[in-house]
């Protein structure tokens, strides 16, 4: 039981760091440009498909990951410069509609090119199979790699934002757009850069999660909605909030799905009630945060 619980804790952490890769881009784009981007899930899907295609062509997993970053960033730059740039000054309704329209175009476009059947990415042989952790727990190596990669990206992002010139500009751009512009920073290039960065992170997480599951049209939207839950819990615009929220949501989701059916079987003799409650658990968590702290755990009061 304890071993199973530790395994589920690790699974929750792995889900959490992957959610963070999605949520980080969303929250950065919202914090800096004030844009709510529903098409972030499409960028996740673009990354996964690019990786699956390149892996099938070349057989190299590393190249597949590079392709996921590049394709998602390129798609991000394309939609930012052509369409989204016009929407920064518009109200949220227009942003939601335009990015919803982009989801329709991306999803059906991908279906037209790759068909409706899922594609699969295989875990590269050196990273497949289980490892034995201290305490005798057998755990899939690839999931450990995902946890490590996610945490490394989180650290890199933190260094980028707090320690580099570009990062300072991003922070300044979020605080006061006109002032940054007046100081001679090309604000629209900065915006494109932020968008490409968020898109690349989404694409990477699409490729990594797509390796565990499958690559198919429509894979991005459930993750997008969960990422929304993450940033509502963490506080919109806060990257640290996104990290805390993502890990909280990852653990809640995984442990709920593991423990609640067990508890319900013990109490009522059937796992059903526990399964139903587990499926709602992260939204209940979100509701609780809204009651206690509507601006999110790390958000500033409006």
């Amino acid at each position: 039981m304890t071993l199973l619980l530790i395994e589920q804790l690790l699974n929750g952490l792995q889900l959490g760091v992957m959610l963070f890769l999605m949520a980080a881009g969303l929250t950065l784009v919202f914090g800096v440009m004030g844009l709510i981007n529903l098409a972030h899930g499409s960028l996740y899907m673009v990354g996964a498909f690019a990786a699956a295609w390149v892996a099938a062509q070349t057989g190299s997993y590393l190249l597949a990951l590079v392709a996921s970053l590049a394709a998602a960033a390129a798609a991000g730059v394309l939609i930012e410069t052509l369409i989204l740039r016009r929407l920064y000054a518009r109200d949220h309704l227009d942003q939601v509609l335009a990015t919803f329209a982009l989801i329709l175009i991306f999803s059906e476009g991908t279906r037209a090119v790759f068909g409706s059947f899922p594609l699969y990415l295989t875990i590269p042989p050196p990273l497949s199979g289980p490892v034995t952790l201290p305490g005798g727990i057998e755990y899939p190596l690839f999931r450990l790699v995902l946890i490590g990669a996610g945490l490394a990206v989180a650290l890199g992002l933190w260094l980028l934002i707090t320690r580099t010139r570009v990062g300072i500009r991003i922070q300044a751009g979020a605080a006061d757009r006109e002032m940054v512009s007046a100081l001679g920073v090309d604000i629209s290039r900065l915006y494109t850069l932020v968008f490409a960065l968020g898109a690349a992170l989404a694409g990477l997480s699409g490729a990594l999660v797509g390796t565990l599951q499958s690559v198919e049209v429509g894979m991005g939207e459930p993750v997008l909605i969960t990422a929304f839950v993450v940033i509502v819990i963490g506080g919109i615009g806060s990257v640290q909030g996104a990290l805390v929220g993502a890990i909280l949501v990852g653990l809640t989701q995984t442990l709920g799905a593991f423990l609640l059916p067990l508890a319900s079987t013990r109490l009522t003799g059937a796992p059903d009630a526990g399964q139903v409650l587990a499926s709602m658990l992260i939204y209940i968590l979100m509701a609780l945060v809204l009651i206690v702290r509507p601006q999110g755990l790390m958000g500033r009061p409006a």
Binding site: L97, F100, A101, L102, I103, L104, I105, E108, G109
Partner: peptide
């Protein structure tokens, strides 16, 4: 796709 384009 066309619905998306129209909406956009």
């Amino acid at each position: 796709i066309w619905l998306g384009v129209l909406l956009l």
